[in-house]
Design a protein around this nucleic acid. Sequence first.
DNA 1: CATTAACCGAGACGGTACGTCCCGTCTTAAG
DNA 2: CTTAAGACGGGACGTACCGTCTCGGTTAATG
Lengths: 196, 196, 196, 196
Amino acid sequence: VTAKRGRPRSESARRAILAAAVARIEAEGYGALTMEEIARHAGVSKQTVYRWWPSKAAILLEALTEGAAAAAPQPDTGALGTDLQQFLRSTVRGARRNQRILAALMSEAQLDEALGQAFRDQFLATRRGVLSGIVRRAADRGEVGGAVDPDDVAELAFAALWYRILGGRGRLDRRFADGLADTLIKLTGASGAPRP
Amino acid sequence: VTAKRGRPRSESARRAILAAAVARIEAEGYGALTMEEIARHAGVSKQTVYRWWPSKAAILLEALTEGAAAAAPQPDTGALGTDLQQFLRSTVRGARRNQRILAALMSEAQLDEALGQAFRDQFLATRRGVLSGIVRRAADRGEVGGAVDPDDVAELAFAALWYRILGGRGRLDRRFADGLADTLIKLTGASGAPRP
Amino acid sequence: VTAKRGRPRSESARRAILAAAVARIEAEGYGALTMEEIARHAGVSKQTVYRWWPSKAAILLEALTEGAAAAAPQPDTGALGTDLQQFLRSTVRGARRNQRILAALMSEAQLDEALGQAFRDQFLATRRGVLSGIVRRAADRGEVGGAVDPDDVAELAFAALWYRILGGRGRLDRRFADGLADTLIKLTGASGAPRP
Amino acid sequence: VTAKRGRPRSESARRAILAAAVARIEAEGYGALTMEEIARHAGVSKQTVYRWWPSKAAILLEALTEGAAAAAPQPDTGALGTDLQQFLRSTVRGARRNQRILAALMSEAQLDEALGQAFRDQFLATRRGVLSGIVRRAADRGEVGGAVDPDDVAELAFAALWYRILGGRGRLDRRFADGLADTLIKLTGASGAPRP
DNA sequence: CATTAACCGAGACGGTACGTCCCGTCTTAAG
DNA sequence: CTTAAGACGGGACGTACCGTCTCGGTTAATG
């Protein structure tokens, strides 16, 4: 590792910026969010913001990654039904909590190629990979038909999730999560999840 | 009706604006698209643009609606499989052709409440309605199980479509359209589409 | 002349900008003067300032030129002594009134080549030309020795004036103007000015 | 004297800073000169610069003082003409050599009150004092008329010199120095300098 | 056929955010 | 205690677009 020289980066400034970005997007929406406002609310100079992030979306991506780090579930109960149910309920809950940030990031990813790359690779791919893994383990256990591609299943699940995040139709509630689990079960040909 | 007085609206200016907006978004992307650039490229004053559209997204929405007016298919072959196949192939083809515009509109819909409303109501709902109708007619013919909600099927189809439009994974090709048709068939419990 | 098209330039904005620049330099000094502050005090957008002037010094130069337009004296009494006295008293008075602006412009002229050119050509050269003319007319009348170069006399006079403007020594009062007139008379070998 | 403790001041850093300041002002001009650039070119941290000088002008003033220390002439030949000629030739030569620095300092002195004070008291007053002394000694010898104020003569000489430094008109060459000497001789009523 | 109302181009206007630069200060570790 | 390194809060820079406005001119339907 290279020796640290000079004044160390301010952790408090970093946290204040992430918090300010999240607070302002919740209050005013992504369209009204500006780098200047983030700096102002964080009590920080614009230069400090630009030193570490190239855009407001990059700030939100870091805030999201940090906030979602612990919350990432990786169920492995031994049954596809319960795994799916747990994963989807948790994921939908997280998506509802961070809906504005997620919608903003997907929106910005359409305009900013570099951000889109980072968003898809760092954030989306890992989450989709977890779901693929769940299906693949079920396939290894012989729970699903041989023609099922785990990646296709994961794509369909996240497509449905994102459609709701982006406001296509309906809400992000438990009903939606469980219905989606049922749909996936039906597609894979496995037996259903337990109903509580 | 009120009698028209004064100089009539210039149809050539209107067309030039729509064309310029589409040309510039293809060339530079939506992020670099500005009202001033549209006016400049259309050889038109800014005022003329603002007189008829409130935002660049509104221009794109009109361009899209106009371009897609004829292309809207409404197959009714009497079999769910062929209806789905025709509808999805045509829709996917149109989505690929207008991918940048669609992505831009969905992106902007996240920021602009009024535009989002118009986009969803005018554009998305009608297209989703066509697909719901296809499924509903199949249900009336007894092709699908009674538990199937045509709106849910349509939602899932458009979710998958939008996921690809927004760059989630994979391309918008015929393979995708046919695979999606298969998936929907499987979910509804109907018999498959004919393979050419 | 080219036909005027578009919204005409706002004369009131122009005047407000000139007035604001002069007011702020008197209040805070040239060092604290910024384009943003000028715009703010003039109740004008920054763009409007930048549209017409490239720098704060250019604004001051225009304000000075406009203010000094009427005040430019061109005495021709038929006697070198009285011509000099009138010219120098008036010029010194004007210099004292605009001392901060003049010092600022000479200061900025050292940093900005283009401004220096404009300042010297538009402002300084014309004023020095008036004095040269006074001496030249006296030479034509035979009042001064043949070896005297009117331009050298004018240079010396403005050198002395600028030295005081820039704070070298002493004040810009009538005593200084009359003493300078005496010095020039002595150098040209002409007879002195009348003492009141 | 207080005993020195801790790491001593780096003489090499001090010299590097002065040299960098002079080099950069010659290369880019005073307008483009910044504290950061001086530190960068001197291979020194900004803090080291700020610890010893309050501004870039202060650095230039020290560089000028150091460079001009040896070059300060104080002729006393016993004749006003030769004294003036020697003093002015030497002074004009030095002014030409350091023209950019001198112009920059005079420029900055208009903006920075403290620097202006230091510049005038430390640098200008001493040089003007030497010239006053030359004239005063000539007066003591009876070479000049009783009405002549040595300080006025010195002011006029330096006014002419600064007018050329600041780009008013003409060059800083020997012709100018000798012509100025002649003018002063004529004003004091003394006999001229020897022509080589 | 003149009037009149709405359109059109051009372009200046007040305003806001952009991303950069430099200011002068600070906080480290190293000497 | 000085030094190199470099992050910090602050603030002006000059630019780009925003959406509005004010011009002179144009183009039909109306009176």
